[in-house]
Nucleic acid binder design. Structure first.
Lengths: 219, 219
DNA sequence: GGCGGAAGGATATGATCAAATAATCTGCTG
DNA sequence: CAGCAGATTATTTGATCATATCCTTCCGCC
């Protein structure tokens, strides 16, 4: 097919995995929504086998959840699970930010600033999807600088778990009027203050967690 | 088949997943050893599809690793990855131990003591596999008490990553003459000292990490 | 309200296709 | 003439699909 040129040499199950991952991260799949193998296979124009494999991966990462029987859905966060996520993220992500700050070159910082600028533009535009995408990109690219694959993969899984709920939050309240912790992180980065970067990232993700908590409490 | 009676109603891919997971945890698959789908399918008497799904899950959990091309093998830890694992485990597992201690009933503690007793018997017997199994069981059952599924799943993934190396270490040096941190943890648990339990577990896993580090440094 | 049957969907197999590595062969050079 | 390099084939293994079988659920009926 023509689309296979764009995907280069990536196997179908990998492409499907990334696609579904995006759907979870950026709110195309809402929390609680059931996911069927044949449905996805139809939508994505793939066979059932690659879709099955992608779903297994995403289930292992916590992006999807077995429903006891043999059904799969996007997990709905409870308050206590949100506490677990808050703890895990606060443990892992500031550390990654610290390591990243130590290794960042001026070019790396400029790149992150560009991503952050696009993020802010998306906010002003009221583009929720763009906001989520660039926010995720910012954290992902930052953590990649840390050159700590295991910790980064853990952080990726944690982001996957908060993704759907973040989407819901953004639909309700905006993200206006909140302090810009990314800006703080970038400033500290330019100043060579790795601890400051870690603190800023910790504050940033705490903001997101708190917003989700508000949303859960509101019902 | 006859074996399906023992497994109850578990789907094949789940059975295969648990089997391969055990092989990784308890040293039937050594670090660096290549893993082939068809080989496993033949050994386990299963079709390719369930094996593929199990491998995807285990790869997502870090128990197996893509080898760039399309080959899969048991990962070999580097020193810097060991540092990452040490940090992540020290962040997550003491917390789980703390939560578990708060919820543990006397019956729970008795169960853990029974597991620990079997562990010690395996050590005296020189039974490496038994030691690894009961050690894993001890941590797994302890963390299950915390009723924190997300943190427990993270801990499970971290244990999966150190499993193969632990096996190698046990083959070289014994585990003799090391302080018994499980005993410390259980004592603190009976005393209702959750912080003490967390400290003991932190010391326990640090011991394991240090042993692996010694082994890596020795080459 | 409990039971039976139909339908939708998940599981699992084997066949087929494609890719990567291993092995062999040929031709050239020292 | 021996040895090595490059290329080509062969074998092994992974990827994908189409299909058959089995659950689970839902709906109608008793």
């Amino acid at each position: 097919m023509t689309a296979s040129q764009q995907t280069g040499r990536l196997p179908t199950h990998e492409v499907v995995y990334r696609r579904i991952r995006e759907m979870v991260l950026f709110g195309e799949l809402a929390p609680g929504q059931p996911v069927t193998i044949q449905g996805l296979a139809g939508d994505l124009g793939a066979g059932m086998t690659p879709v099955r494999e992608a779903i297994r991966r995403l289930t292992a990462e916590g992006a999807l959840e077995f429903q006891g029987n043999r059904r799969v859905c996007v997990p709905v966060l409870t308050l206590s699970q949100l506490d677990e996520l808050a703890f895990a993220r606060q443990s892992i992500e500031p550390r990654l930010a610290y390591l990243a700050a130590q290794r960042a070159t001026p070019g790396d910082i400029a790149h992150l600033e560009a991503v952050d600028a696009e993020l802010n533009r998306a906010i002003e535009r009221g583009d929720v999807r763009g906001y989520l995408q660039h926010n995720h990109r910012f954290h992902e690219d930052l953590y990649a600088l840390a050159q700590a694959r295991i910790l980064a993969s853990l952080a990726g899984m944690l982001l996957l778990r908060v993704g759907p709920s973040l989407r819901v939050v953004c639909g309700r309240f905006g993200t206006y009027g909140l302090p810009d912790r990314h800006r703080d992180a970038l400033d500290a980065m330019r100043a060579g203050d790795a601890d400051g970067v870690a603190r800023a990232i910790g504050a940033d993700l705490q903001q997101g967690i708190d917003q989700i908590r508000q949303s859960l409490l509101a019902g």
